[in-house]
Design a protein around this nucleic acid. Structure first.
Lengths: 217, 217
DNA sequence: ATGAGGAAAACTGTAGTACAGTTCAACTGT
DNA sequence: ACAGTTGAACTGTACTACAGTTTTCCTCAT
């Protein structure tokens, strides 16, 4: 334990900090889907130069939360049925590929722990936290693939997912969420790959349908 | 066939064009792995402003060919054994997940065609083209997953892969490449999933080993 | 020669100004 | 109600400037 422990210099750029901050705001719903991020306004409000904002937004683009349109600048991604479908299809492929692998003990433990945290958040009824833990549970499943690249890819998708789930209000009861995840967990623990795959498919189908439903208004 | 077919206005920005151009140069080996992209030099040489280059490089970052380091700017990614391993592991997971699905006729045809093109390029002995078609073959396999998001993800990885394969010179004969892909194709056509998985694993193991070997110098 | 130290040069990160070309919204006359 | 016009608001890009970091290069003691 050094006397300098915890001391750390700024090791990050303004643009990076702005990107992080904006990312947070967007996910919190400060900008609605389809909204444009106006550079001068943001720059003026935060007291930074416009090119710095521009760079921050380019960094944001990495996470997939905004995309650039020529002469219109950065636009917050807007969910469409096709996009949601594409996102969930990718999830389905990854997660089903993951659960047919034999989990190592610590992986199994991580998934179990993730489930417990969902249950805990559900008991408290904190919807925001339920979403977070829900995503963490699925992240733990993808981790079964033992591929850092795929983990990263899933993390990126997670940002979009959380965004959708946050912007569109939720329509499931916490109990339903817990129940759905419990059957997945059970199947994994039992080593019943076929059932795990089936449960994941069912879970994802339900989610897609709910999201589409919410979107239709 | 409209009379206006093919007509298209510029619909792209300078930064985007620069990003494309730089990407090409990097993959062609104009910049070695680990090299820094010096903004002022590039800006001066191409007659554009430095902030435009900066933006172009941020776009480049999207494809994973460069990454930013604080106060050092953009650096061309350098292959390390760990990175190569991570890349190929992700490939392996995707491709094996793909071949256990039953291919639709047009997907099978696409893969077959991709193989034929490998054979064709091999006959000509054009190593650059062999690499391209090799990657296209694997892209066709990943397409079996029917997920545009995963296709895109694989495409991004492909850029890195091609880069490695281009920078590091090749050490396989064209015949070996063709033979390796033929067994994969055969297994897929026969619907023998287990063998297809095994062949893909073998193929990827060989590639990783060769790359690491080349890297050790 | 060689390695340590330190000064200078080269660059990045950021700010700020400017302006042409585009998009968008409000206004106008029909 | 509506097509057309106009002007304001913005984006894309260029240029200049400068503080803070790296990198390079030179010097000096060993």
């Amino acid at each position: 334990m050094s006397a300098l422990d915890g001391l750390e210099v700024r090791r990050t750029t303004t643009a990076q900090q702005l990107a992080d901050g904006l990312s947070e705001r967007i996910m919190a719903g400060a900008f609605g889907p389809g909204d444009r991020l106006r550079e001068s306004a943001i720059a003026a409000e935060l007291g930074v130069a416009r090119n710095t904002i521009r760079e921050a937004v380019r960094i944001l683009e990495l996470t997939g939360l905004v995309r650039y349109e020529v002469n219109r600048g950065a636009v917050v991604i807007a969910p469409t049925p096709e996009k949601i479908e594409a996102l969930y299809t990718a999830r389905e492929r990854l997660e089903t590929a993951a659960v047919i692998r034999a989990p190592r003990p610590e992986q199994l433990e991580a998934i179990t722990r993730a489930f417990d945290e969902i249950a805990e958040a559900a008991a408290e009824g904190d919807t925001g936290r339920i979403v977070d833990r829900d995503l963490a549970f699925h992240q733990a499943i993808v981790a079964l693939l033992d591929s850092t690249r795929l983990d990263e890819f899933f993390t990126a998708m997670t940002k979009e997912l959380r965004f959708y789930l946050t912007v569109l209000s939720k329509s499931e009861t916490p109990e339903e969420v817990v129940a759905q995840h419990r059957v997945i967990l059970d199947a994994i623990r039992l080593g019943d790959h076929d059932r795990a795959v089936a449960e994941i498919r069912a879970h994802i189908d339900v989610s897609v349908e709910q999201l589409k439903q919410l979107l239709r208004r």
